[in-house]
């Protein structure tokens, strides 16, 4: 089957844009519409777009890590963010904030880290599941 040239070319521009957009969604999620779930889903869509326009194995090569690891790391980040307050003798998952806002990132604290974990996990899980399906064909 002859592959269309439009999709791969478009993907080359779209995918990085979507990935940047997903990070944007993640970062502003605490104050504006967005967040880890949406960000992760958008990023996963971007990656799947790439997989569909080229091939699943191309996505495998593109990913720095096995999506299984990505999902696991996301879960660990979220879990870890919950443990940070314990070092300050506060209950599990209490929000701890760095008082001075950082440039670009804004105020960050353990909930930001938690959201990052959600973001990473959603990417990992969705890409993992869809790749399993894609390769099952």
């Amino acid at each position: 089957m002859q592959r269309s040239i439009i999709l791969p070319v478009a993907t080359r521009f779209l995918m990085p844009l979507m990935l940047v957009f997903s990070i944007f969604l993640l970062l502003r999620g605490h104050n504006e519409v967005g967040g880890g779930f949406v960000g992760g889903l958008v990023a996963a869509s971007a990656l799947m777009l790439y997989a569909i326009s080229t091939s699943p194995s191309a996505l495998w090569r593109l990913l720095p890590l096995d999506p299984r690891f990505i999902a696991g790391i996301g879960l660990l980040i979220s879990l870890f963010s919950g443990f940070i307050p314990l070092f300050y003798e506060k209950p599990f998952m209490t929000g701890i904030w760095i008082e001075t806002p950082l440039p670009v990132l804004g105020k960050i604290g353990t909930p930001t880290l938690f959201d990052l974990g959600v973001y990473v996990l959603v990417i990992g899980v969705v890409v993992w599941i869809l790749l399993e399906f894609a390769e099952d064909e």
């Binding site: 605490h30 504006e32 519409v33 967005g34 604290g109 909930p111 959201d115 959600v118």
Partner: peptide, 17 residues
Amino acid sequence: AKGHNVVNVILVDFRGL
């Protein structure tokens, strides 16, 4: 929780567990 988006704050902070 230092957040303006209440839905997201509920998700990651109030009901983070």
